[in-house]
């Protein structure tokens, strides 16, 4: 599999505190990669480095072929990002939000128009194109936020706890969207606290106290840790974490 993220001993220190310690891993094209860890394990730090938002202290990494020290602007153009606190504008309509993000990513007006129609029909939101985002139910906002994060056809999309607060049906519809995007070749890098969602990933890494404590497919991890669920694998690895206070 063609790698789109490659890291080697990637490390970030804040003074004496080693937030991310010698992370070495690869993520392939079209892969759904689960990035798990307890609160304070260093996930956010690692993700911010991969998005080109934070300079590493040492180690190497490339994202879609671009260096995370020197080519952060290229990285930002080639990735998508969505967090639980979506970055949609409440007082813009659905259509205006799509147009805004298309514009930010430097898409041409014609491209944006085509993309808007495509997204609206995929989301079955044609009837809501002129609705203010503030009036949408949470589940729809979530789907729209994901669509907006891949409006510029990025190679990778980073999803930071994307499914908080929605019902189990909406959560699954969201994952259908993720599967669809991955099937089209988009690499999905996702963090979650829902351990059943960890099972949906092709491979999963689990961070404990700044290091990657385990990395494999959910099936292989369950076998290795003699567990019937990822919940139990996670518990075995994370329960002895020392960094609970940060």
């Amino acid at each position: 599999m063609e790698p789109v993220i490659v890291t080697e001993k990637l490390t970030k220190k804040f003074d004496d505190f080693v937030a991310a310690n010698e992370l070495t891993f690869e993520v392939g094209k079209g892969e759904i990669f689960g990035f798990l860890g307890a609160n304070g394990a260093g996930k956010t730090t690692a993700m911010r480095m991969l998005c080109g938002l934070l300079k590493p202290s040492s180690g190497k990494a490339t994202v879609t072929g671009f260096d995370i020290y020197t080519q952060t602007e290229q990285i930002k153009k080639n990735i998508g990002y969505m967090s639980q606190k979506f970055s949609l504008y409440d007082n813009l309509t659905v259509k205006e939000n799509i147009r805004f993000y298309g514009g930010i990513y430097g898409m041409r007006r014609k491209e944006i128009a085509v993309k808007t129609d495509e997204l609206l029909s995929m989301l079955q939101l044609q009837g809501e194109a002129k609705t203010l985002v503030s009036e949408l139910p949470l589940g729809w906002k979530q789907k729209l936020a994901f669509s907006v994060s891949i409006v510029h056809d990025p190679s990778i999309v980073f999803l930071d706890e994307p499914t908080g607060g929605v019902d189990p049906v909406t959560r699954r519809q969201f994952w259908d969207q993720i599967y669809y995007a991955a099937d089209k070749g988009v690499t999905v890098f996702v963090t979650t606290h829902y351990m059943d969602e960890a099972e949906y990933c092709n491979r999963v890494s689990i961070m404990v106290d700044g290091v990657i404590a385990a990395l494999d497919s959910p099936a292989a991890l369950k076998k290795q840790y003699h567990s019937s669920s990822m919940q139990d694998v996670f518990y075995q690895l994370a329960r002895n974490a020392k960094r609970k206070a940060d």
Binding site: A38, H193, F234, A238
Partner: peptide, 9 residues
């Protein structure tokens, strides 16, 4: 909500 599964347990 938003707490990891070890802390939840």
């Amino acid at each position: 909500t938003g707490v990891d599964s070890v802390s939840r347990k």
